[in-house]
Design a protein around this nucleic acid. Structure first.
Length: 865
RNA sequence: GCCCGAAUGGCGGAAUCGGUAGACGCCAGGGACUUAAAAUCCCUUGUUCGCAAGGACGUGCCGGUUCGAGUCCGGCUUCGGGCACCA
């Protein structure tokens, strides 16, 4: 055994052993308990960044730990290879997106292997491969036949200079990020998946996901946004058709002083036909395709349509307005406005001088426009009563709700209705680097799914990409085909799928490599995923689509489970400052933190920054998640080269608990390296003295017993951290603490050495999931076996942990005043007797009467005087 | 704006079910070893008063519950994530 720790030699040896023994290739084995550990696969942006290292180390630690418990562990990896950055890089580097993507994948694979992650690469998926995406094309055509897919017009960001559709990310302050042109809104036909058909099931399913964080489940619940309310209609003067509205607050119906419709509502559009001013307003104020955050913060604007609605109960006439804050896609695209009791309606009414009517009174509160918000009633406030509402006066929220629903349902003019905030999923993208949507357009037969025997529809990879027009849109030959129904000339769809499509079902494909169908029966051995790990930024979109697709696959008979993953660990973001330069047009170029010299203030915040290369000034941006677009990812390769993979893994796990966000700073990495050197030297020193004798528990002296108790306390703590708590920083700290104790243990008696053998073996196995290369080498030195990977994780010997004495903390009035040693078996009275006899206690109790004595067994005593 | 989180020494963090605040590590300071450096080892290290023993204060801010609050409740502030075409 090398007396010095040489991480690169150790890592090479362990990795070639794993490769030669195909250590991570797994097969289905019904006789063994399976464990499917899945980490969110990366977008192949070029290099791994620290967020990846953290994510994949957590997954690898979990996988190796479960393997040491004897389970049949599947840990796959792949690449989410379609997407926008490849197109951007292709334009910048004058290459094809495919070429750029494949070379990134190659490099990132070598990095993943260098970190020692135990992946079964025989199951790898690359989503840009036809062998992968053909199955999602198949699923889509089946969903089409089933009626879960439809086409409708939808608005996109159109860059009039670049003649291309822009993603939201590519629109900065209303302008195209490259061209600087004012972005236009264009309505084009696009494909949608009916996720709303599964809204209730997606909501109910959350209750079964006990292993998911509450925060994620709450976010998903709010996103799905189920509400119960009343749908009813207003007669419109001079119009045949009534105007239907939806409200979750029917109790405020008598407070309606106007009605607001969305700008795109047919009523508004009709009114604009002979009102040019209104027509201009409807166009100008349009919020189509604007991100919700922008919509919510923008000025609320409206205009009267010049028509009136008749209140269904009072019969009074109220004006109809168009408002830019009403969503056409939610409810009926029209709302009753109750400025007395809705904040947005209130602001709108003040702005346009519309009447405000109070219909809810809360005992002890009076209306005052200055404190309007305070006056606004919480609907479940028990002192809430309706006023100014005719025969509804005196009712509370629930009573009024029920009474009105009953009244409208009896008259047949309205009904109770459940609405969801969730919208159907628009899956069409007008981009090249994605999976072609398998649809054929025929003049006679309309849109037809591509027949299954003609799949896949392959995306050509060897193309000339300029960034203006998708190569498949520009190529008439690619588009040309025949109608599968009538055989006439027809054209292919040239839009591609949203890349969330690929990442919604990869967990299933990993289970069935090479299957000549979406998945085969192997899927039901492995699924559902036992542990899913990924960034918290995916809490809503990806994780909802992932759950949705699993249910779609279930309903097509491919999988048997209802949910894709039973446990979810949401990794906190790895964040880092951002740096940029700005040109005269306000265009920002993001600079990697590794390329700037930074001056810090006393608190470590950056004060100023300069480009390392030429010393020119660089501006400091916010602290954000590491990403390609902000170029603030830190490449771990420098650290791997300098310290080795195990140090990087150890430090990534030690820096923070997995779910906490982490502002990356590698200043502590030296400590991790130091720890591994100490571990190596400790084992080396022990092993170099030759084999140890067998441990004789009965013959241990008190010092040996104490150390052995510390060992087994540590084993219990570490096992709990790995298994239940999934918190690795504290597990590492516990082992460090144990090693500090061992360093002070000088005992080369036979039994002393036997105990050290037990300790070093346990320490190496406890750390093995985190630092597997070092674990492999040290386990071999200690046990003569090269099987650290499959060694059993240590189990605490409870009998070694029993203590006869415990330390109790003594408080007087809640303040720490003393400590006493008592026998573990001492009774309450015996403890109190000893407490009162204590010198320090007497000092603080003297001359006062003790009012209360609180004894918490095994922990503390508090005297209240 | 809305939804979900977070805030503890100079820094990363610990305190798991309301019971010793600051484990473990980094940085810094002092010392040992060395011709020297690296590596390694030992000591100190929340603030403050005190020669010391010991005391007071202290977990973003304001208030509350409790014998006892970093932890629970109410109200804020700041930061991070998401808001449907970044992934």
């Amino acid at each position: 055994m090398n007396p010095n720790y040489d991480p690169h030699a150790v890592e090479r040896a362990a990795q070639s052993f794993w490769t030669e023994t195909r250590a991570f290739e797994v097969v289905e084995d019904p006789s063994r308990e399976k464990y499917y550990c899945l980490s969110m696969f990366p977008y192949p942006s070029g290099k791994l960044h620290m967020g990846h290292v953290r994510n994949y180390t957590i997954g690898d630690v979990m996988s190796r730990y479960q393997r040491m418990l004897g389970k049949n562990v599947l840990q796959p990896m792949g690449f989410d290879a379609f997407g926008l950055p490849a197109e951007n890089a292709a334009i910048a580097n004058k290459t094809a997106p495919a070429k750029w993507t494949y070379s990134n994948i190659e490099y990132m694979k070598t990095q993943l292997n260098a970190l020692g992650f135990g992946y079964d690469w025989t199951r790898e998926v690359q989503t840009c491969s036809p062998d992968y995406y053909r199955w999602e094309q198949l699923l889509f055509t089946r969903l089409m036949k089933k009626g879960l897919v439809y086409r409708k017009d939808s608005v996109v960001n159109w860059d009039p200079i670049d003649q291309t559709v822009l993603a939201n990310e590519q629109v900065v302050d209303g302008r195209g990020w490259r061209s600087g042109a004012l972005v236009e809104r264009r309505s084009i036909p696009q494909w949608f998946l009916k996720i709303t058909a599964y809204a209730q099931e997606l909501l109910d399913g959350l209750d079964t996901l006990e292993g998911w964080p509450d925060s994620v489940k709450t976010m998903q619940r709010n996103w799905i946004g189920r509400s119960e309310g009343l749908e009813f209609s207003f007669e419109i003067e001079g119009h045949k058709d009534p105007l239907t509205v939806y409200t979750t607050r029917p109790d405020t119906i008598m407070g309606v002083t106007f009605v607001t419709v969305a700008l795109e509502h047919p009523l508004a559009q009709a009114a604009a036909r002979n009102n040019p001013e209104l027509a201009v307003f409807l166009k100008d104020a349009s919020t189509d395709s604007l991100p919700e955050a922008e919509m919510e913060t923008m000025e609320k604007r409206g205009m009267a349509l010049g028509i009136h609605a008749v209140h269904p109960i009072s019969g009074k006439k109220v004006p109809v307005w168009a408002g830019n804050f009403v969503l056409m896609g939610y409810g009926t695209g029209a709302v009753m406005a109750v400025p007395g009791h809705d904040e947005r309606d209130h602001a709108f009414a003040l702005k346009y001088q519309l009447p405000i009517k109070q219909v809810i009174a809360v005992e002890g509160e009076t209306y005052d426009s200055a404190t309007w918000k305070d006056w606004y009633a919480d609907k479940f406030n028990p002192t809430l009563k309706l006023v100014n509402s005719g025969d509804l006066d005196g009712l509370n929220y629930q009573q009024a709700f029920d009474a009105l629903v009953e009244r409208f349902e009896q008259q047949g003019t309205g009904q109770r209705r459940i609405n969801f905030r969730l919208r159907d999923w628009g899956v069409s993208r007008q981009r090249y680097w994605g999976c072609p949507i398998p649809v054929i357009y025929c003049k006679r037969c309309d849109a037809q799914p591509v027949p299954e025997d003609q799949l896949p529809v392959v995306l050509p990879e060897d193309v000339n990409f300029t960034g203006v027009k998708s190569p498949i849109k520009a190529d008439p030959e690619w588009r040309k085909t025949t109608c599968p129904k009538c055989g006439d000339e027809a054209e292919r769809e040239t839009d591609t799928f949203d890349t969330f499509f690929e990442s919604s079902w990869y967990h299933a494909r990993y289970t069935s490599p090479g299957a000549e169908q979406l998945v085969d029966e192997r899927a039901n051995y492995w699924l559902p995923v036992d542990q899913y790990i990924g960034g918290i930024e995916h809490a809503i979109l990806h994780l909802l689509y992932f759950r949705f697709f699993h249910k779609l696959m279930r309903d097509e008979g491919f999988v048997h489970s209802d949910e894709p993953a039973t446990e979810l660990l949401t990794q906190g973001m790895v964040i880092k400052e951002t740096y940029f330069t700005e040109d005269a047009n306000g265009q920002k170029t993001w600079i990697n933190p590794a390329d700037v010299d930074i001056e810090f203030d006393a608190k470590g915040h950056p004060l100023s920054a300069k480009l390392t290369s030429d010393g020119s000034a660089v501006q400091i941006g916010g602290i954000e998640k590491m990403s390609k677009s902000k170029n603030n990812g830190i490449d771990p390769q420098v650290l791997i080269d300098q310290y080795g993979a195990d140090t990087v893994r150890l430090f990534a796990m030690f820096a923070a608990p997995p779910d906490a966000s982490l502002e990356w700073n590698d200043s502590g990495v030296e400590g991790a390296a130091r720890f591994l050197r100490r571990l190596w030297r400790g084992v080396q020193a022990h092993v170099s003295q030759g084999p140890a004798e067998k441990l004789e528990l009965a013959s241990l002296n008190p010092a040996q017993k104490t150390l052995r108790a510390a060992l087994h306390d540590t084993i219990a703590k570490v096992g709990d951290d790995y298994g239940r708590r999934k918190q690795y920083n504290t597990a590492i700290a516990a082992v460090m603490e144990l090693m500090n104790t061992v360093a002070k243990f000088e005992d080369d008696s036979t039994q002393g050495r036997a105990l050290l053998q037990e300790i070093w073996e346990a320490v190496v196995l406890m750390l093995n999931p985190i630092v597997p290369h070092t674990g492999h080498a040290l386990w071999e030195a200690l046990s003569g076996s090269n099987g650290a990977l499959d060694a059993r994780f240590p189990v605490a010997d409870e009998s070694a942990r029993v203590k006869d004495q415990v330390t109790l903390v003594i408080q007087v009035n809640g303040k720490l005043r003393s400590r006493i040693e008592v026998a573990s078996s001492a009774s309450k009275d015996e403890i109190l007797e000893q407490v009162l006899a204590d010198e320090n206690v007497q000092k603080f109790v003297a001359g006062q009467s003790i009012k209360k004595k609180i004894v918490v067994p095994g922990k503390l005593v508090n005297l209240v005087v």
